[in-house]
Every structure is written in structure tokens, then in C-alpha cells.
Computed example of a mutant assay.
Amino acid sequence: MLIKKTTQADFDSQQQARAMRGFASTLASKICAITRGNLSIPMIQAGEISVASHAAKEYIEKISPSIKYKIGVQFDESSFIAIGIDSNFVSKSSYYWAGGRLDAPVKTINSNLTGCEAAFLKSFIELIQPMIQEELNNCAYVKVEISAFDDNGIAFKNEQRVQINTVNCAFKDEEVSLSIITSDGVLNYCNLKNAGETEIKLKDTRNLLELNTELEACFEPFQLTMGDILNLEVGQSFIMNDNAVSLINPLDKSVIKKGILGSGDQNNQLVKII
């Protein structure tokens, strides 16, 4: 029997990757619908959304420069979410939008926008920005505002990772892609998995005195040797050096709060939020 060790940073990153799947799919379908309805580009989502996780250094040096245009929001000095648009998306979409043609010029990463591309990009962002802001506000714990985004100002932490959900979109014989970009820590501000799915409506609840919810409690990782684990029997006990627990949303396994397990004046078991 093998036990795979993982760091807290890796665990948090895996939780966030799972939470992002549904959110990215929702954004992709709505972006395609807005583009069809307002820009007359018959765009649909093509294939599965691919997910990649990158170390901050790799993202800054190699990935971010290739995704030239971004809108998004920064939650704290190191946590953000953004929608990225690359030059290929702008070039192919803009020339079809302008005259129904697909003969866009070949672009490099550092190429400047043509007049046609600049006009399309402006119209496209103006269309999707309110929708993305609404989707985020449906699941964010604080109100957010989406604007042009530059990740050069992000103070990435040690071992922090950046996740990119790449959405392939097709129209006519062309394929382009959009990127939904998140850094570790976003789940502290947004319950992304449940956006538009299990949202709790609090309208007409002025007489509601109590709102019940279900949470799972999970003890923080503790150390046992392989021999200790194999020798455990029913009725035996072992010492935990740490009484820290996490309160977890059972729907998407995201950590809502962290606390310390203890007892109260009447010997009740309590969790003190930290």
C-alpha cells in the first residue's frame, strides 16, 4: 500500500481545480451565446475544457505573455481570477466579424492590433464584461468589479500555482480559444463550483429566524507511520498533536472556515473559528 504525500498548497490547488470546472463551462457557453447574438459570429464551444496548472514562475515567464489581453479582478495581493484572450482569437474573430472573411493576417505575440482587431476587441470586452461580473458576484463572498487586468502587479507567494482552463471555440472552419485563469486562494473569496447551481436565494426571508446548512468537519493532516496505520484496531486510540479542523462544503469540498477543536464550560465539543 502506497500513501502519496502532498503539501497543503498542492491540496488547495487540487480543490480549486475541481471547483473551477463548472464555472469555466458556464462562462464559455454564455460567452459563445453573447458572441453569436451580438457580433454575428456563429461561435460554439468545441470539445472538453482542458485544465493545466503552472508554477508562478512558469506562468509569469511563458504563459502570461502568450495570453495578451485579460479582464478580471484581484482579490488580495496574490489571488485573482481573469479571462484571457490571445492574439489568435482576436485576429480570426475580428476579420470574420468585420466582413465575413477568415483571411486574417498571420500574427505574432508582439504584433500590434490592426484597426479592425482593436474595434472587435473593444466590442467583445464590452459585451462579456457585465456577464462575467454578474457570474462572479453570484458566487463571491464580496462584491467584485471586472476591469482590464494586468497580472504583473500580482505578488505571487512561494509554491503558489496558477490554473488555466482553456476553452476551445469553433466557428465556420476556424478554432480559437479562451482562457479562464485563477491563482491559488480564489476559493477564499468565491464558491465557484456552485455559481448558478445551488445558489441560496434570500428573497422574502425577513421572518426567517434560522438557516440550516450542512458542513463536513475534517481534521488537519497528522503524522502516523505506515506501521502505526497497519496496526490500528477497533477500539484503539492515538494521539493527535494538532487539534485544527477545517469546515468543508460537502458539495464541492471547498474549505469554508478553519478552526480549533476544544470543549466549552459544559464540556461540549466546540470548534473555535480562527
Rank of each mutant, 00 (worst) to 15 (best):
L224C: 03
I274T: 08
Y59E: 03
R18I: 11
R21E: 13
S93L: 04
C190F: 07
I274P: 01
S254V: 04
D10R: 12
E135N: 13
T166K: 14
A98G: 02
S254F: 05
Q163W: 15
A119E: 05
K107A: 07
F80T: 00
S147E: 15
I41T: 02
Q14E: 15
M226H: 13
S147P: 01
Y141W: 13
A28P: 01
H54E: 15
D86F: 04
A33H: 07
R206T: 06
E77Q: 11
E175T: 07
F80M: 02
G115H: 10
A33C: 09
T182H: 04
G153A: 10
A24L: 06
F120N: 02
N268C: 12
A244V: 07
G153M: 11
K258M: 02
N138W: 14
I164H: 02
K172H: 11
I274Q: 05
T108N: 10
S183V: 01
Y69Q: 00
Q236V: 05
V255Y: 13
S183P: 00
A56R: 03
G235C: 11
Y96F: 13
I154M: 05
K122I: 07
T35E: 11
F75M: 04
S93D: 01
I63T: 13
I164Y: 07
K70H: 07
K143P: 04
S147F: 15
S94P: 02
F23W: 08
G99I: 05
N38L: 14
T114P: 00
A52F: 12
L113A: 06
E145Y: 14
E135V: 01
D242K: 05
I49M: 06
E48P: 08
S94E: 04
E77N: 08
I83T: 15
Q133C: 06
T213V: 07
T182C: 12
P105H: 08
I60A: 15
S147C: 12
L27T: 02
